[in-house]
Design a binder for these strands. Structure first.
Length: 800
DNA sequence: TCCGCACAATTTTTT
DNA sequence: ATTGTGCGGA
């Protein structure tokens, strides 16, 4: 990796300096000896990478394939800009999507050039950078500099109020749906007045835009913004205040963007505005790894870069330092089925290694068993668990592996899932703190006024909010007024009185106590911890732990205010990454990571590519799914092992599934297809050969399902789709394939045979309870209690 | 106000 | 299967 530390003084000068005259003239390595010939990081770069680092002027698009050293280029470029004196740290804008990426970029830059990197004020996420700018000029867009950044939960609650205020049916028009529409509009930089009519009609018969406008108005009143606003408000600030825009355009001499393929329209406009003056915009990305279209990313941004920024230099990073040739060839061939791409040819100098393994299994359980066994074997061969990862399309697929790993006592870690700061208990705690910070934080008040239960139910809160809105005062103020009158009675009155008094009490204590002690006091006195302790739910123990962890992390900040300010944007306290364990994560979460051994299970039609994605977005989604497959394959350094099952339990129902079309798109020469009938290497017509190998496993016998038996998987998938339209479906209409009396049973027994014995009582999802009347391999004849004798496949049945 | 039951939904995820 | 949500009754 980076062998070079920050001792610039040692750099030798050389007449073969790569710098131009003008660069050399300007070179001012920040107080260190000027004109270092070869900067140390340069020695570490290949030709293309070097070009990407040295082309400092004008628009630059660095197309960096998987594993081609993208971050190295970015950080070297930062170092280059600083050390050659082309820019002061504060004159560089460097944006990423995640805090993690920003942190990594900062750290690695500092490793190259030392503490100079600390001065990079404008290295951050799109959102944090926008927030910095916006706080500076809040008044110009109708906000106070202290504006609060809403999280999704607050946002939904606010939207709920807005929808209610319009007298709409919450059930038909959910806040969640409106939130996703508004998010989509904001991603495309559409303010309420710009929402196209047809779009507005997606919600409540044309009220979409109006509700959006109402929501925005409420946000302003509450002095809040949501994540989308951070970008949008900044854009409108720039558009409406030429002097402000000019100030930033002048300041940012150089702009760097990471993961450009993930930018949405708003981010594109934002960048275009800022880059206008110096035009030194360098974007780094890979169109083939664009997998976030569903949340607004526009692959077009990267595809159109040359057009948008005329005269752009395009640098292709194609030398891969991660994977073996077989893996690269498989991935490259697969992705070549995509039409919408710029095109790259990855190559490597690595030795061949093993081919990509493709294996068909009887069902999901067998798949988990196989993968677990592989991992054990890997481990026995002297490797670590942590070198392996299981990459799934959707998180429900993780459970099978967890169960298996648990059984075999294979250590594992699930990456992703609910984030620490998104857990209910953490947000409840935050709501308390926010309310203590400022009493007019109505959203915080609403969240915890009855958590734990204080006898202040929905009716009381509704009445309170109505009155507060009418009077135009915060909820806490109105609550005090209300308590002075006889409006509230009984439990609600006692509860609210106590709550308000506690708030006052905590606010006083806030002045004397260190904030961590205050936090503990609040959690105790509010009854929150007692509530969790009393909760019999097994999760409440870990919730209490989370609260302890919360208080601990607060200790890292000087004040409560500093802490709250920080968490609004930087919500990714990494949970402890400890120990050696197999990692289980989604393909999305795997982007940017790598492992020697990568498992890619569940390559089945409707699972991967995901049926839902295809239904919603058709071909566009198919290409994105394919990119996801590409991302998955390119995570592997030494070994990539794809697998698919013939039968899978999805949402509690058994379904017979077909191999993914992506399997047919893999190139023959680089893939080994294996089934438990033997070991196959394809010479000709690989798909067929491969298919035949899987045939016995993956083709459920029965009417209609033999139709495409001789053809590749995709053709059969099409046949199955056609059948489905006619109502004859294995996945939905029936609880599983039925074996007709007459049907030739082509399938032989799968993994474990004769699981069932004569006379056993079983349960079938579709037909209910019955007794086993006859067993023939995996084919069972069952006498069902309700529907008589039927023939079914054993995997669709379980012991009753 | 709270609790329990019926019912529906169920990809991916960052800020 | 699982999990969250909304409604009706105690």
């Amino acid at each position: 990796m980076f062998a070079y530390r920050s001792n610039l003084a040692n750099h030798t000068m050389s007449s073969e300096s790569p710098l131009t005259i003008s660069q050399r003239a300007m070179a001012q390595p920040l107080g260190l000896s000027a004109v270092a010939g070869e900067f140390p990081w340069m020695l570490d770069l290949n030709e293309r990478q070097r070009q990407a680092v040295e082309t400092l002027d004008g628009p630059v698009l660095v197309l960096s394939g998987a594993g081609t050293g993208k971050t190295k280029v970015l950080t070297s470029r930062l170092a280059q800009l600083l050390v050659t004196g082309r820019a002061k740290p504060w004159e560089i804008l460097a944006v990423t999507f995640t805090n993690k990426a920003a942190r990594e970029m900062r750290e690695r830059t500092q490793r190259l050039i030392g503490p100079v990197g600390e001065g990079l004020r404008w290295l951050g996420t799109f959102h944090s950078t926008s927030a910095m700018i916006l706080r500076q000029h809040a008044e110009l867009v109708g906000l106070k500099p202290s504006f609060t950044i809403l999280d999704t939960d607050d946002q939904i609650r606010l939207l709920k109020q807005v929808i209610e205020s319009e007298g709409l049916d919450q059930k038909r028009w959910t806040p969640r749906f409106l939130a996703s529409l508004i998010e989509g509009w904001k991603n495309r930089a559409l303010t309420p007045d710009k929402v196209p009519t047809d779009q507005a009609f997606l919600f409540a018969n044309g009220k979409g835009a109006k509700l959006y406008a109402l929501y925005q108005a409420r946000l302003k009143i509450l002095n809040c913004v949501d994540f989308g606003d951070l970008l949008l408000e900044t854009i409108s600030l720039f558009l409406n205040q030429a002097d402000v825009l000019n100030q930033y355009q002048t300041r940012f001499k150089f702009i760097l963007v990471d993961e450009y393929q993930d930018t949405n329209v708003a981010q594109y406009l934002w960048l275009r505005l800022l880059a206008q003056q110096h035009k030194n915009l360098c974007v780094v990305g890979d169109d083939d790894q664009s997998i976030y279209g569903w949340r607004g990313a526009e692959v077009d941004n990267i595809l159109r870069f040359e057009h948008d920024f005329p005269g752009a230099t395009i640098v292709r990073l194609e030398r891969n330092y991660r994977s073996t040739p077989h893996i690269l060839a498989a991935a490259s061939h697969l992705i070549s089925s995509n039409k919408n791409r710029l095109g790259k040819t990855l190559w490597t100098k690595m030795p061949d290694g093993e081919r990509v393994l493709v294996r068909g299994l009887w069902d999901g359980e067998a798949e988990a068993r196989l993968i677990a066994d592989d991992i054990e074997q890997w481990r026995r061969s002297g490797r670590r668990y942590g070198e392996g990862a299981v990459l799934v399309r959707a998180s429900w697929q993780m459970r099978a592996f967890e169960e298996r790993f648990l059984m075999l006592q294979i250590p594992y870690r699930v990456i992703g899932g609910p984030r620490f700061f998104e857990r209910a208990e953490i947000r409840d705690a935050h709501a308390y703190f926010r309310l203590v910070r400022s009493l007019d934080d109505d959203l915080a008040f609403e969240r915890i006024v009855n958590v734990p239960k204080r006898g202040i139910g929905d009716t009381s809160v509704q009445r309170l909010s109505a009155a507060a809105r009418l009077a135009g005062v915060p909820l806490v103020t109105m609550a005090k007024d209300l308590l002075g009158s006889d409006e509230l009675k009984g439990q609600a009155r006692t509860g609210l009185t106590r709550f308000i008094n506690q708030l006052e009490h905590w606010r006083k204590k806030a002045l004397e106590l260190p904030h961590t002690e205050l936090a503990e006091m609040i959690l105790d006195e509010s009854g929150y911890t007692d509530m969790l302790k009393a909760d019999k739910n097994p999760q409440s123990v870990s919730r209490l732990d989370n609260l302890k962890e919360l208080v601990r992390s607060m200790g890292l900040f000087d004040t409560l205010a500093a802490y709250l300010e920080h968490i609004e944007l930087v919500m990714d306290l990494d949970r402890a990454e400890a120990g050696d364990g197999v990692q289980i994560l989604t393909l999305h979460a795997a982007k940017g990571l790598e492992w020697p051994l990568v498992f890619l299970p569940g390559w089945e039609e409707e699972v991967f590519p995901s049926k839902r994605a295809l239904d919603e977005k058709g071909d566009k989604a198919l290409e994105e799914e394919r990119r996801l497959a590409y991302v998955g394959l390119t995570r592997a350094r030494e070994s990539a092992r794809i697998s698919f099952a013939a039968n899978r339990q999805i949402y509690g129902r058994w379904a017979s599934v077909l191999p993914s079309r992506f399997i047919d798109e893999l190139p023959d020469g680089h893939v080994d297809a294996v089934s438990d009938t033997g070991y196959f290497t394809q010479a000709i017509g690989a798909a067929e050969a491969r298919f035949n190998a899987y045939g016995p496993l993956s083709t459920p016998p029965g009417d209609g399902f033999n139709a495409g038996y001789e053809s590749p998987g995709w053709k059969r998938a099409q046949a199955a789709h056609a059948l489905k339209k006619g109502g004859l479906t294995a996945a939905k209409g029936f609880g599983g394939p039925i074996v007709d009396g007459e049907a030739k049973l082509v399938a032989k027994t799968g993994a474990g045979d004769a699981k069932y014995k004569l006379g056993q009582r079983i349960f079938h999802d579709k037909f209910g309870y019955g007794l086993v009347a006859h067993v023939e391999g995996s084919k069972l004849t069952i006498a069902f209690e309700k529907s008589g004798e039927k023939k079914v496949i054993d995997s669709f049945v379980r012991l009753a």
